[in-house]
Design a protein around this nucleic acid. Structure first.
Lengths: 248, 248
DNA sequence: GAAATTCTTGCAATTTTTTGCAATTAAATT
DNA sequence: AATTTAATTGCAAAAAATTGCAAGAATTTC
């Protein structure tokens, strides 16, 4: 294994978890802790991460980002996104709707993965920009400012020509009877088109959104193939979903 | 076996695996490791891959630090953008290509102005998001990572249906004889479509770009209605443009 | 403040790179 | 066509780098 590869793995781990333990990296890379220590020292000198006793932490890991993570339940979303990203394979074509959980997925997609991402979401497209191996295709149209995604006839038309391997469908609410529901009519239309345009529909959702419902229906639970939450598989809240949906 | 052939093989291996070991390549090509080493050194000098101890690694891999466009001429761009924004009126439909000067225009558009902005540029769309009175329509498509705009057939098709009042055409180079030229072919195609889709073409350009030229031609000076620079109207550099173009 | 963990330093084994050199091949010149 | 010149390639020895280990120093943790 090249030194450069180790460096990339370390930086990737730091990017995802905001910190790494020296011992963990040594285990992952199957090299001695001394080697990892030297690697971290080097990356520290290059200002790619901050070396600390016992490992390293992300440069951007400051008080501000820490507080933010807590307030917006990003911690949960991050765990969900990690699971979601583990589904991805080289060569796939995926479809990402908007939302903060999907944004977190976009952030965590490893830079070496060669996939094609369709998205109507501006922040997600921006998030993907620096990843060299990812082909980004923005689904254009009138931008809904709340959700920051394209809506209207144009994206729906564009989606009609697509068949993606996986659609990560960010949802507002999911309910055992009402299915997946949404607050805005125009967003419902786009998400319906996204479901049609995909072989597999994956819903990444924090537990707060589970068992809630909104005004407009996107689809029933039968249209959803996989539900990803931060909860444990055995959690009683998830019991009702187990019948119709696979869980992760 | 020609050196060029070996180079192709090496680059291909790097492209596929993101890295190569010197010993592996020597084995594949049936040449000495020294030869491979020299090849890799050469390709490194040509900036086609990154030479590292034990082999080579793909370039874009750790491109996480993003290419910062020249922040220096921001002052000029700001002055140009101010002039450009003064052209805008309520109710207009405008078309913004990419580029930092146009991004500055987007930033300076007053929030009370009620206009519709079409753009294939992700950063510009993001910049416009918080302005409540501006309707944003993103022209979607495959994203060119350098320019961060959508390129290809999809945006060109979308533009064919549009007639905007003004197009702010960010340019790479403008020349009295060669006209407006660009470095990348796929961007040329989009910009041509943008010109067709607009009643009036405005080129905001810092003086450094004036009188330079690139490989591909977008249009002649006759297609440009207005040139905005930071220079004074009486500047001798602008003399040649006065005949065919209005200045601001 | 004692125990546990982590870090530093020096060292040796291994791997990789550099350098000079000679043999071969290709290109240019007469 | 023959000769010269330049470029390419492989080899070998020396230099440099990487890596893991161990012992003592420093830091953290309880």
């Amino acid at each position: 294994m090249l030194k450069e590869e180790r460096h990339q793995v370390i930086l990737n781990e730091v990017r995802i978890h905001n910190k790494v333990l020296l011992a963990d990296i040594a285990e992952i890379l199957k090299v001695s802790q001394d080697t990892v220590r030297r690697d971290i020292k080097e990356l520290h000198d290059k200002n790619k991460l901050k070396r600390v006793h016992g490992g390293a932490i992300s440069l951007g890991f400051n008080h501000y980002s820490y507080v933010n993570r807590e307030i917006y339940s990003l911690e949960k979303k991050s765990r969900i996104a990690e699971k979601a990203v583990s589904l991805l394979k080289d060569g796939q074509v995926i479809l990402l709707s908007g939302g903060t959980t999907n944004l977190e997925i976009a952030r965590l997609i490893p830079p070496y993965l060669k996939i094609t991402c369709f998205t109507p979401s501006l922040p997600i497209a921006m998030q993907l920009l620096p990843k060299p191996n990812i082909e980004i295709i923005v689904i254009g149209g009138k931008i809904n400012k709340d959700s920051q995604i394209a809506v209207g006839g144009s994206p729906i038309g564009a989606l009609a020509e697509l068949k993606a391997d996986i659609c990560f469908l960010g949802v507002n609410s999911i309910h055992p009877v009402e299915g997946v529901t949404e607050l805005y009519w125009e967003i419902v239309q786009v998400k319906k088109a996204m479901i049609k345009a995909s072989k597999k529909v994956v819903v990444p959702s924090i537990s707060e959104k589970i068992n809630s419902e909104q005004r407009y229906k996107i689809c029933g639970l039968d249209a959803v193939d996989l539900l990803i939450t931060e909860l444990d598989e055995s959690d009683p809240q998830l019991e009702v979903y187990k019948q119709s949906i696979e869980l992760l």
